[in-house]
Design a protein around this nucleic acid. Structure first.
Length: 489
RNA sequence: GGCCCCAUCGUCUAGUGGCCUAGGACGUAGCCCUCUCAAGGCUAAAACACGGGUUCGAAUCCCGUUGGGGCCA
């Protein structure tokens, strides 16, 4: 290994970290951590008026949720204007750049003429031939001017880690502006100077920057430095295959936190979008991703964001966590949903952990955890219509099943021994002539109000005899009322 | 419109000239397990965009077409 890896993530402060930016950040982070290198965070806030602290904070919140940390920065591009202008001056002195006095009107006319000729427009280079002394005089005289880079003839190319050999003919580029008439640096100059000053070795960024790359390489050359290695990662697409954006719904990564996704699962999912470890592994921890990640294995093809796969991955990550780990994550959600308060959850901590262990395998998001866990807390149960329809369709039959259940509960002495409980209930059901399955299903609705729950004996054990008795009684009362109204109708 | 990128199941991907009657995963369908639903196990349907080359041999290399996307305008 020669020089240590230095990469950067350079978002513009848009108020939130979007999915595409998150993946770019992730790839940079993974590469830095994989190589033991350095990740620099740089805020590209050249659009100073829109770069408020809140806008920047939104980006940082997203990175924090993903667990992406950085080693240097955040640096602010807006504060580096002096460095950018200095570089521009140097380029003018060395003859690589020149002042341009062309007015907006003149340029518009050039452009229209080009369009009329059905040619692509590039700046004609009219001011390139100006005598430097005269140009200096005009500038001092207060004539407005920009600074343009003098693009040499030829071709600019690089070996992109993702795309391989990539080349642009210089004549398609045209002498581009590097300094606005107000002295503000243009993006390509700022980026190049910053990356150079920060000694970035690998530029890992979105595909949408490919067309900026030859300009930056030209700038590196004129500034007398070797350009870094470039890796242009393909974009993330919406289901309609266009660049993922607001109209596809949630683009801010924190929206996925709100939707009940685990940070580790989201990171795993993002990593698999445009990258794969090369074997069949899919469910991977952060540590495994760091270990396996290389830039060479990034695909050149853009990927569609598939929420269903994200949900599956989240379920996988959830299942792999212990009850205690899930409990720690789920606790605030139960409090927020007003199912229980902090004190109660603290008092019943072991019980809550067992409960989370019970519901985690049938949950995909954290919200599923809440909905499945809800009935295990004391209080009235709401009978879901679909559950009633499926298991209590005939009120009289349901009631007789619940009568068996009540008799069983009254006589059960081996509470907590799942096998013994099941044996007991089956024996009693057979005596009563009601199929055991019917009893269990009717009980499920009585106890949870839902058609889906953990095994009925686990459910009973988690609830405890008192809650179970109360709920069976309440259910029979409810069914009696329903039977009466059914008879009336 | 110009320039550039991309092209394997619906989706994410493996595949770097013979191991490919193209592998895995999500999703879908079916079966098993079963007190429900998941999880888990098994099975199925499902792809190399098209046309030319190069080669003994092409998903893999080259050219073109088509399609998708990005940037600039």
């Amino acid at each position: 290994m020669s020089t240590p890896v230095r990469v950067r993530f350079a978002p513009s402060p848009t108020g939130f970290l979007h999915v595409g930016g998150a993946r770019t950040a992730l790839f940079n982070w993974l590469w830095a951590r994989h190589t033991g290198g350095t990740l620099v965070l740089r805020i590209e806030d050249t659009d100073a008026q829109r770069s408020t602290d809140e806008m920047i904070q939104g980006i940082l919140d997203g990175l924090e949720w993903l667990g992406i940390d950085w080693d240097e920065g955040p640096f602010h591009q807006s504060q580096r204007g002096a460095r950018h202008r200095e570089a521009a001056d140097r380029l003018v002195e060395s003859g690589s750049a020149y002042p341009c006095f062309c007015s907006v009107e003149m340029l518009a006319a050039e452009r229209e003429a080009a369009i009329a000729r059905k040619e692509s427009y590039v700046y004609s280079g009219r001011c390139r031939g100006l005598d430097p002394a005269e140009a200096a005089r005009r500038r001092e005289g207060g004539e407005p001017s920009t600074v343009r880079f003098a693009v040499p003839a030829g071709e600019t190319s690089w070996e992109d880690v993702v795309h391989g050999h990539t080349a642009f003919e210089n004549r398609t580029i045209g002498d581009f502006i590097i300094l606005r008439s107000d002295g503000a640096p243009i993006y390509n100059l700022a980026v190049t100077v910053d990356d150079l000053d920060m000694r970035i070795t690998h530029v890992v960024r979105g595909d949408d920057h490919i067309s900026n790359t030859p300009k930056q390489i030209l700038l590196y050359g004129a500034l007398g430095v070797e350009p870094p290695v470039f890796a242009h990662v393909p974009l993330i697409l919406g289901p309609d295959k266009s660049k993922l954006s607001k109209r596809h719904g949630a683009v801010a990564v924190t929206a996925y936190r709100e939707q009940g996704f685990l940070s580790a699962a989201f990171v795993n999912f993002l990593a698999l979008l445009g990258w794969s470890p090369g074997d069949d592994r899919e469910v991977m921890t952060r540590a495994e991703l760091i270990e396996a990640f290389t830039l060479e294995r990034i695909t050149g093809k853009s990927a569609v964001f598939d929420v269903e796969k994200l949900e599956w991955l989240n379920g996988q990550h959830l299942s792999r966590l212990s009850g205690a780990e899930v409990a720690a994550i789920a606790k605030p959600l139960f409090v927020h949903a007003r199912i229980a308060d902090e004190a109660e959850l603290a008092r019943r901590a072991a019980w809550f952990e067992d409960l989370m262990a019970l519901v985690k395998t049938r949950s995909r998001t954290l919200h599923d955890l809440v909905e499945q866990g809800r009935p295990f807390f004391p209080g009235p149960v709401e009978y879901q219509p679909d559950a009633v329809e499926k298991f209590w369709k005939d009120a009289a039959l349901a009631d007789s099943a619940l009568a068996v259940a009540e008799a069983y509960v009254a006589g059960e002495e081996q509470w907590g021994d799942l096998e013994a409980m099941e044996a007991g209930l089956r024996a009693l059901a057979e005596e009563s002539g009601v199929p055991a399955g019917k009893v269990m299903q009717a009980m499920r609705v009585a106890l949870t109000g839902q058609r889906v729950s953990p095994g009925i004996f686990e459910t009973m054990t988690a609830m405890g005899p008192d809650v179970v008795r109360d709920r069976l009684a309440a259910a029979r009362a409810w069914l009696a009322g329903r039977a009466a109204s059914q008879a009336g109708a």
